[in-house]
Write a protein that binds this DNA or RNA. Structure first.
Length: 476
DNA sequence: TTGCATGATTTGCT
DNA sequence: AGCAAATCATGCAA
């Protein structure tokens, strides 16, 4: 899209209009001034050189004037100015003017311009709306923020995406700047050209009949030409934004695996809420925050997890045990911290008792059958009674159809369990903490393969925290 | 390259 | 609106 094209187009329109006038002139020359060749390029004597009052002289005068009008475009500016002045001052000018008016009236030329205003172009409106929505058009403040927010939502809003978002924003700003610069340029050019043409027509209206309506029409033509260019600008801007979008935002299917940490957090929550793995909105938000993902991603994850877990429980058993153990360790850590806090400097609670690394719970598959936690927590520790503990694993087995009878727990694990028990028994009020942990409650994956509400709400919801609380179940 | 894992989307249901 | 189920599409390790 170039300004020169537009100018050329506008000039064409103008030329066409002038051409109409010229043709009329020619017809005058051909009919009224029969015998005088105005087209032949014959050099005619200057108009002031004839003062004759006879008919022939008058005709020649008019012929001269017409010839001058016809050749005015070939003249230099100074020459033209001088000629124009001469023409305006010519004694025959009013007569010529009235003749032109008359002819114009007869040919109905003025009516031709009586076109109604075009209704707003729907495509242009569409482009405008689009640019506005994308933050390219409209107010500068917050420009692109909506789109950037959309970007954040679409691509997960993870921290590692922030670079991409700033990149996106920078590119969008660049597009916006170019768009506005170009738009300004075109508007300026349009105004300049309109002013120029209007001046020209006003000037010409002294020698030929040009009604204000015609000037208006001409302005309309110019504006239409320019708006078509503007539309091209808008269109290509939209295209650029679309390309940018597709590069940054619409790569929705171009998934990126969540970080290991995020997956662990989600898994911990899932397996500790196996009885009812439906996090509340608050829990989702909390998880999303912790995992640096969006709430909808959390929902997706749980949706996928539930369905995949249910489809192949056997496959997830190991994972379930792992996370259950992990949660237990976390709980023990929390308990230890509590003990340490309450019994500061006490020699009876040595730190060494809690130096449990996760790896120590990395049971091999032979050892890590569901017996682990049921063994752990169905034990006869008086201060550590967990109602319904182990049910979830039994249920899983029954669903799996696996027969299993008291598999052995690795010695190292057992020792950790013992330590754990010891710690827990030392920790006042810990019953609630673990008892409130649904990990050890029954899970309600029914025979149809669907989860149902836990029968004991207290086993799902921590007595100290609201439903779906993340704190009580994972890191704490 | 292949097969599995996994995040995202779509569809239909309640 | 939220969910289950099916499906798509990509990431990734072998």
């Amino acid at each position: 899209m170039s300004f020169s094209i537009c100018v050329a187009q506008c000039t064409d329109s103008l030329a066409a209009t002038m051409d109409d006038q010229a043709r009329i002139m020619q017809s005058i020359g051909g009919v009224s001034l029969a015998g005088h060749s105005v087209q032949g390029g014959m050099a005619l004597p200057p108009p002031h050189g004839h003062d004759g009052t006879d008919g022939d002289g008058r005709k020649q005068d008019i012929g001269d004037i017409l010839h001058q009008i016809m050749t005015i475009t070939d003249q230099s500016l100074d020459e033209a100015q001088a000629k124009k002045h001469g023409l305006n001052c010519h004694r025959m000018k009013p007569a010529l003017f009235s003749v032109l008016c008359e002819i114009k009236e007869k040919t109905g030329l003025s009516i031709r311009g009586a076109q109604e205003e075009d209704p707003p172009d729907p495509q242009l409106m569409r482009l405008d709306n689009m640019l506005l929505a994308e933050g390219v058009a409209g107010p500068e403040k917050g420009g692109g923020s909506a789109a950037a927010a959309a970007a954040a939502a679409a691509s997960g809003g993870a921290a590692d995406n922030s670079i991409e978002h700033s990149d996106y924003r920078a590119k969008l700003t660049q597009i916006r700047q170019i768009y506005h610069t170009e738009l300004e340029k075109y508007e300026q050019a349009c105004n300049e050209f309109t002013t120029h043409v209007m001046n020209l027509l006003r000037e010409q209206s002294r020698t030929r009949p040009i009604s204000p309506k015609e000037i208006e029409r001409m302005v309309g033509i110019i504006h239409r030409k320019f708006s078509s260019i503007q539309m091209q600008l808008k269109q290509s801007t939209c295209e650029a934004v679309m390309i940018l979008r597709s590069r940054f935002l619409d790569a929705r299917r171009k998934r990126r695996n969540f970080s290991k940490q995020a997956t662990e957090i989600l898994n911990e929550y899932f397996y500790s809420h196996l009885s009812n793995p439906y996090p509340s909105e608050e829990a989702k938000e909390e998880l999303a925050k912790k995992c640096s993902i969006t709430v909808s991603q959390v929902s997706n994850w749980f949706g996928n997890k539930r369905i995949r877990y249910k489809k192949n429980i056997g496959k997830f058993q190991e994972e379930a045990n792992l996370y259950a153990a992990k949660t237990a360790v976390n709980a023990a850590h929390a308990a230890a911290a509590a003990v340490q806090n309450s019994q500061a400097n006490s020699p009876t609670t040595p730190n060494s008792g809690f130096q449990m690394k996760d790896e120590e719970f990395q049971l091999d598959s032979a050892e890590s059958k569901n017996t682990l936690l049921s063994n752990m927590f169905t034990g006869s520790s008086g201060s550590f009674s967990l109602p319904n503990s182990g049910d979830m694993f039994l249920s899983m087995q029954s669903l799996n159809g696996d027969s299993y009878q008291g598999a052995q727990v690795g010695a190292n694990v057992q020792s950790q369990v013992d330590t754990l028990r010891h710690v827990i028994s030392q920790t006042a009020g810990y019953n609630d903490a673990l008892g409130g942990n649904p990990m050890y409650s029954q899970h309600s994956l029914n025979a149809n393969g669907g989860w149902q509400d836990a029968t004991t709400p207290s086993s799902v919801i921590s007595p100290t925290e609201g439903p779906g609380s993340v704190h009580s179940d994972t890191s704490n």
